[in-house]
Measured scan of single mutants.
Amino acid sequence: MSHKQIYYSDKYDDEEFEYRHVMLPKDIAKLVPKTHLMSESEWRNLGVQQSQGWVHYMIHEPEPHILLFRRPLPKKPKK
């Protein structure tokens, strides 16, 4: 599979999560399941490479070739 064609967005966040999206080329996108969110082993098997802790959290129906990921931000110590 062509890992060079996978595009990784910059990371962005809110108060709770860090987010990123990953755009897959058409040949890989056709392998994305339409019935469920992928486990880490499933998206890694497609060639997506990112650190541990990312969760495929949403399917964007109009653009199924874009995978939406998030992971919890580290808890800030209370002052």
Results as ranks from 00 to 15, higher is better:
1 M>L: 09
1 M>H: 15
1 M>F: 15
1 M>C: 12
2 S>Y: 15
2 S>T: 15
2 S>R: 15
2 S>F: 12
3 H>N: 14
3 H>F: 15
3 H>A: 15
3 H>T: 10
3 H>C: 08
4 K>F: 07
4 K>D: 15
4 K>P: 14
4 K>W: 05
4 K>M: 08
5 Q>M: 12
5 Q>N: 13
5 Q>C: 13
5 Q>G: 15
5 Q>E: 13
6 I>G: 04
6 I>F: 11
7 Y>L: 08
7 Y>V: 15
7 Y>P: 00
7 Y>I: 15
8 Y>F: 10
8 Y>E: 01
8 Y>H: 08
8 Y>P: 06
9 S>C: 10
9 S>F: 14
10 D>I: 10
10 D>K: 15
11 K>C: 12
11 K>L: 13
12 Y>H: 09
12 Y>F: 10
12 Y>S: 06
12 Y>D: 08
12 Y>A: 08
12 Y>P: 04
12 Y>W: 15
13 D>A: 14
13 D>I: 15
13 D>Q: 14
13 D>C: 15
14 D>I: 08
14 D>E: 07
14 D>M: 04
14 D>R: 05
15 E>H: 09
16 E>F: 13
17 F>P: 06
17 F>Q: 05
17 F>N: 00
17 F>S: 05
18 E>A: 06
19 Y>F: 06
19 Y>C: 02
20 R>E: 02
20 R>G: 03
20 R>S: 05
20 R>N: 05
20 R>I: 06
21 H>V: 09
21 H>I: 09
21 H>C: 08
21 H>N: 15
21 H>E: 15
21 H>M: 10
22 V>E: 03
22 V>H: 02
22 V>G: 04
22 V>R: 02
22 V>T: 04
22 V>A: 03
22 V>L: 03
23 M>I: 15
23 M>N: 07
23 M>W: 14
23 M>F: 15
23 M>K: 11
23 M>R: 13
24 L>R: 02
24 L>D: 00
24 L>G: 05
24 L>E: 00
24 L>M: 02
24 L>W: 01
24 L>K: 01
25 P>M: 01
25 P>C: 05
25 P>F: 00
25 P>E: 05
25 P>I: 00
25 P>S: 09
26 K>N: 14
26 K>V: 08
26 K>L: 09
26 K>F: 04
27 D>A: 09
28 I>N: 02
28 I>Y: 09
29 A>W: 06
29 A>L: 07
29 A>H: 07
29 A>F: 07
30 K>I: 11
30 K>G: 07
31 L>G: 07
31 L>S: 07
31 L>Y: 08
32 V>D: 01
32 V>M: 03
32 V>R: 04
32 V>G: 02
32 V>W: 02
32 V>P: 00
33 P>C: 04
33 P>Y: 00
34 K>E: 08
34 K>I: 06
34 K>Q: 08
34 K>M: 08
35 T>L: 05
35 T>D: 14
35 T>H: 13
35 T>N: 15
35 T>E: 12
36 H>F: 03
36 H>T: 08
36 H>K: 10
36 H>I: 02
37 L>F: 00
37 L>S: 01
37 L>G: 02
37 L>E: 03
38 M>I: 00
38 M>P: 05
39 S>G: 07
39 S>H: 09
39 S>R: 08
41 S>I: 10
41 S>D: 13
41 S>F: 13
41 S>G: 11
41 S>W: 09
41 S>Y: 11
42 E>W: 04
42 E>N: 09
42 E>S: 00
42 E>I: 00
43 W>P: 04
44 R>F: 08
44 R>K: 10
44 R>Q: 07
45 N>T: 10
45 N>P: 03
45 N>D: 09
45 N>L: 10
46 L>A: 00
46 L>S: 03
46 L>Q: 01
46 L>H: 06
46 L>R: 01
47 G>V: 01
47 G>C: 02
47 G>K: 00
47 G>R: 02
47 G>D: 01
47 G>T: 00
47 G>M: 01
48 V>Q: 01
48 V>R: 01
49 Q>D: 11
49 Q>T: 10
50 Q>D: 03
50 Q>Y: 02
50 Q>P: 01
50 Q>A: 05
50 Q>V: 10
50 Q>W: 03
51 S>M: 08
51 S>I: 00
51 S>K: 06
52 Q>S: 15
52 Q>R: 12
52 Q>G: 12
52 Q>I: 08
52 Q>T: 14
53 G>D: 13
53 G>R: 06
53 G>L: 02
53 G>H: 07
54 W>T: 04
54 W>I: 00
54 W>Q: 03
54 W>V: 01
54 W>A: 01
54 W>R: 02
54 W>F: 03
54 W>E: 02
55 V>I: 12
56 H>E: 03
56 H>N: 07
56 H>P: 00
56 H>C: 06
57 Y>D: 00
58 M>S: 11
58 M>E: 10
58 M>I: 06
58 M>Q: 13
59 I>P: 06
59 I>T: 10
59 I>F: 13
59 I>N: 11
59 I>A: 08
60 H>F: 13
60 H>G: 07
60 H>Q: 07
60 H>M: 06
61 E>I: 06
61 E>V: 08
61 E>A: 10
61 E>F: 08
62 P>W: 11
63 E>A: 10
63 E>F: 07
63 E>T: 10
64 P>T: 07
64 P>I: 01
65 H>P: 00
66 I>K: 10
66 I>N: 02
66 I>L: 06
66 I>H: 06
66 I>D: 07
67 L>Y: 04
67 L>M: 03
67 L>P: 05
68 L>G: 04
68 L>V: 07
68 L>Q: 05
68 L>W: 11
69 F>T: 03
69 F>N: 04
69 F>G: 02
69 F>W: 04
69 F>K: 06
69 F>Q: 02
69 F>D: 04
69 F>P: 01
70 R>C: 01
70 R>W: 02
70 R>N: 00
71 R>N: 00
71 R>I: 06
71 R>P: 00
71 R>Y: 03
71 R>A: 01
72 P>Y: 09
72 P>A: 09
72 P>E: 09
72 P>K: 11
72 P>C: 05
73 L>C: 08
73 L>E: 04
73 L>Y: 07
74 P>E: 12
74 P>C: 11
74 P>S: 11
75 K>L: 10
75 K>I: 10
76 K>G: 11
76 K>Y: 12
76 K>R: 13
76 K>T: 11
76 K>L: 11
77 P>V: 11
77 P>M: 11
77 P>C: 13
78 K>S: 13
78 K>D: 13
78 K>R: 12
78 K>L: 12
78 K>V: 13
78 K>E: 13
78 K>Y: 11
78 K>F: 12
79 K>N: 12
79 K>G: 12
79 K>C: 13
